[in-house]
C-alpha cells in the first residue's frame, strides 16, 4: 500500500512547480512590459524636452509655455496581460 501511494505521488512536486512556474513567468513578462513602457517614456520625454529647449530658451517676447512636452501612450491591457 505504502509503495502504491509513493508511486502515485511521484513527480507531484515537479508538476506543481511547473504550474506555478507558468503563472510566475506570466507575472514577470507583464512586469517587464510595464518596465519597457515606462522606460520608453523617460527616454522619449527627455528627447522631446531637449528638442524644444532651443525654442524655449531663445530670447523672444512672444514665447509661450508648452507643457507637457510629451504625452505618453496608454498602457493597454494586452501589453500587461499576456494571452
Amino acid at each position: 500500500m505504502r509503495i502504491k501511494m509513493t508511486k502515485n505521488r511521484k513527480g507531484q512536486s515537479t508538476l506543481e512547480t511547473a504550474l506555478i512556474f507558468i503563472v510566475l513567468i506570466a507575472f514577470l513578462m507583464g512586469l517587464t512590459n510595464i518596465w519597457i513602457w515606462s522606460n520608453n517614456q523617460i527616454v522619449h520625454r527627455q528627447v522631446e524636452y531637449n528638442n524644444s529647449r532651443v525654442e524655449a530658451g531663445t530670447a523672444i517676447d512672444s514665447y509661450t509655455l508648452k507643457w507637457p512636452v510629451y504625452t505618453p501612450p496608454d498602457l493597454t491591457e494586452n501589453e500587461v496581460i499576456l494571452r
Binding site: I42, R45, L65, W67, P68, V69
Partner: peptide, 13 residues
Amino acid sequence: QYVQMEAFRRALY
C-alpha cells in the same frame, strides 16, 4: 524626471 523638467521649463517661462 517630470517634476525636474517642469520646474526648469516653468522657471524659463
